[in-house]
Simulated assay, not measured.
Amino acid sequence: MEYELSQLAADDVDAIVSWHYDPPYDFYDMESDPEDLALFTNPENWDDKYAVFDSAGERVGFFSFDVGDDGDILEIGLGMHPASTGKGRGKAFVEAGMEFAAETYDPEIYSLAVATFNERAISVYEDIGFERQETFMQKTNGGEYEFLRMTLSRPL
């Protein structure tokens, strides 16, 4: 399945913030963290955020990219539509985002953080070549949760 990334627009944001996941993945519902929701819905923050569409033109996810201060590390954020998760589509989805990132940002290192309970996503990232770096605690969603930092330092 092919994926296409396009600059995030208001209708994309409206759709994405309405997505609701089944437990335990409801942790990723945008409404779960008011601060993250405010950042995501603010048009001033959309420059490096992209909606993802499948070959049928359906909105199936999003990516955000943040270039580190030194320009060598690209922090990746992403989300898939709840109906697309758990169906074996994750690897192609992440690879499409990484290919876009390689062409657009040309980073030395790709980095992402994932909640440690999300073994499904961790497996996808490792299958692509990401390596586990460290775990850390992060305040979000009204609590403090353990996350895993993963990096990939080779081009795709």
Rank of each mutant, 00 (worst) to 15 (best):
E2N: 15
L5R: 01
S6I: 08
Q7R: 15
Q7G: 09
Q7A: 10
L8V: 06
D11C: 15
V13I: 04
V17I: 15
V17Q: 13
H20L: 10
H20C: 11
P24Q: 10
P24M: 07
Y25W: 11
D26A: 11
F27E: 03
D29G: 06
M30W: 13
E31P: 01
S32P: 02
P34A: 06
L37E: 13
L39V: 14
E44F: 05
D48W: 02
D48M: 08
K49Y: 06
F53C: 15
D54N: 15
S55K: 14
G57M: 05
E58V: 14
E58P: 06
G61P: 08
G61W: 02
F63M: 05
F63Y: 10
D69C: 07
D70I: 07
L78Y: 01
T85S: 10
T85D: 04
G86T: 00
R89G: 14
R89D: 04
A92I: 03
F93V: 06
E99T: 12
T104F: 00
Y105L: 12
E108T: 14
A115G: 13
A115H: 12
S123V: 09
S123K: 12
S123E: 12
V124I: 02
Y125I: 01
I128R: 02
G129T: 03
R132C: 00
K139W: 05
T140Q: 09
T140A: 06
F147S: 13
F147I: 07
L148A: 00
R154K: 15
